[in-house]
Computed example of a mutant assay.
Amino acid sequence: MRRKRMIAVVCSVCMFAASLAGCGSNAEDSKTSESEEKSVELSIAHIGALESPSNLAVEHFIEIVEEKSGGSITITNYPASQLGGDRDILEGIVGGSVDMGIPAAGMTALYLPEYYIFDTPYMFDSEEHLMDVSEGELGEEIADKLLDTAGVRVLAQNWERGTRQCIFTNDVEDLEDFKGVKIRLPEIDSYLKGFELLGTKPTIISFNETYSSLQQGVVEGLECPLDWIYDNKFYEICKNLVMTNHVYSIMTMIINEEKYNTLSDNQKKILQEAAVEAGEYQNEILHEKEAEYLEKMKGEGVKVYEPDLAPFKEKAEPMFEEMEEVWGEGLYEKVLSYSKESE
């Protein structure tokens, strides 16, 4: 009888110990599973050339994300218009065939007209004015509307696109010479209206077809940031650069919202922080390259003209009232309120 009791006690102790061990194992397994992130593959597409500041920044963005996520997020980059122009890429992101991109803000306006303010000639008086708006309360409000309207989330809109200038195959030095010139423009209403007011003949051509269009004489010039002009070798055909400073603009790093919602909270945070950090990195490279590229193009025989910009701004002014019907009443005044020149 005593032996049976001893056996029962021993069995009970063993079962209790096994139970504790099992609980410990389950707790450890639970902790391990919570710490592990599911693997996610993303794609990002843009029109920046391989050595452009924008592509270098995208590569930097990918490195940050993959490192901070411990490899749980991998991103495939499609630069240099491999998946089409800005519009093609943007439509792909909205439709879900492309996950991410950095389209021009003015192209994003196809889905939310308020974004036209970031690609309207002579809207901003400086890069500082631009960034105060894009990263301020007004910029956040516009980004939130894009999410509601198009199902696309803005991760960062601190990516400067570079101050835009004009370059031509024929002799163009000042505003008077703009009259009747066929100029390649993106499919952005504010550009088309603005350059009509400047006297040109706007021609919509996809960015990846611009070089051949210049060669064939379809257009006689284009407008672009200096790094885009240099990286895409437009200076080989166009030898007259006019420093019009007509647009200070941004690119918006965006992601399809459905794809974004497949990420964990930690992965979302990593993407957002990396997008802003990469934007700052891109801007540093951009500012360094602009001066460098200008000197290199001069060395390639490009003539550089710096006209008085007051007549350009005066010619473009009627556009603001006209565009108000597109982007909404009072938005222009809100943008002006961020300008230090208006204080």
Score class of each variant (00 low, 15 high):
321 E>S: 15
139 G>Y: 01
298 K>L: 10
135 E>G: 10
335 V>G: 09
318 P>C: 08
257 E>G: 03
55 N>A: 02
178 F>V: 05
109 A>W: 00
311 P>Y: 13
192 L>Q: 13
51 E>F: 07
210 T>Q: 03
195 F>R: 06
146 L>T: 00
225 P>V: 09
218 V>K: 13
123 M>C: 06
303 K>H: 13
153 R>Y: 09
75 I>Y: 13
202 P>F: 03
43 S>T: 15
300 E>S: 12
208 N>T: 10
248 Y>S: 11
47 I>C: 01
88 D>W: 04
33 S>D: 15
217 G>R: 11
314 E>K: 12
321 E>Q: 12
234 F>H: 02
217 G>A: 10
82 Q>Y: 05
81 S>K: 02
322 E>W: 10
281 Y>L: 09
68 K>T: 09
314 E>W: 05
212 S>T: 15
110 L>S: 08
218 V>R: 14
124 F>K: 04
79 P>M: 03
40 V>H: 06
338 Y>E: 06
229 I>T: 10
53 P>R: 03
97 S>Q: 06
259 K>F: 04
184 R>M: 14
119 D>M: 06
60 H>R: 13
67 E>Y: 05
147 L>T: 10
295 E>I: 08
37 E>P: 06
235 Y>R: 08
209 E>T: 09
320 F>W: 05
5 R>C: 07
24 G>W: 12
137 E>C: 06
221 G>K: 07
18 A>S: 15
50 L>T: 14
257 E>W: 00
171 D>M: 04
16 F>Q: 11
205 I>P: 03
301 G>N: 13
49 A>T: 03
149 T>N: 13
275 A>G: 01
248 Y>G: 07
277 E>A: 15
66 E>P: 07
35 S>D: 15
25 S>M: 11
292 E>H: 11
69 S>R: 06
127 E>H: 08
28 E>A: 14
103 P>N: 02
302 V>G: 08
45 A>D: 10
262 T>I: 05
270 I>A: 04
38 K>N: 15
180 G>R: 08
191 Y>E: 00
174 D>R: 09
4 K>S: 10
105 A>N: 06
170 N>F: 04
270 I>D: 04
206 S>I: 14
34 E>N: 13
263 L>F: 09
27 A>S: 12
7 I>L: 09
252 T>N: 08
332 Y>P: 02
273 E>Y: 07
269 K>A: 05
163 T>G: 10
165 Q>K: 07
37 E>K: 04
12 S>L: 14
298 K>M: 14
243 M>Y: 01
42 L>Y: 08
162 G>D: 05
223 E>Q: 06
310 A>M: 12
298 K>F: 10
21 A>N: 09
73 I>E: 01
160 E>I: 05
95 G>W: 02
305 Y>N: 06
327 W>P: 03
82 Q>H: 06
32 T>N: 14
123 M>G: 03
187 E>Q: 13
51 E>G: 02
80 A>H: 11
91 E>S: 14
169 T>Y: 01
79 P>N: 07
227 D>T: 05
311 P>T: 15
320 F>N: 01
84 G>L: 10
94 V>C: 02
12 S>V: 14
343 E>W: 10
67 E>L: 06
82 Q>P: 11
33 S>V: 15
308 D>K: 09
26 N>D: 13
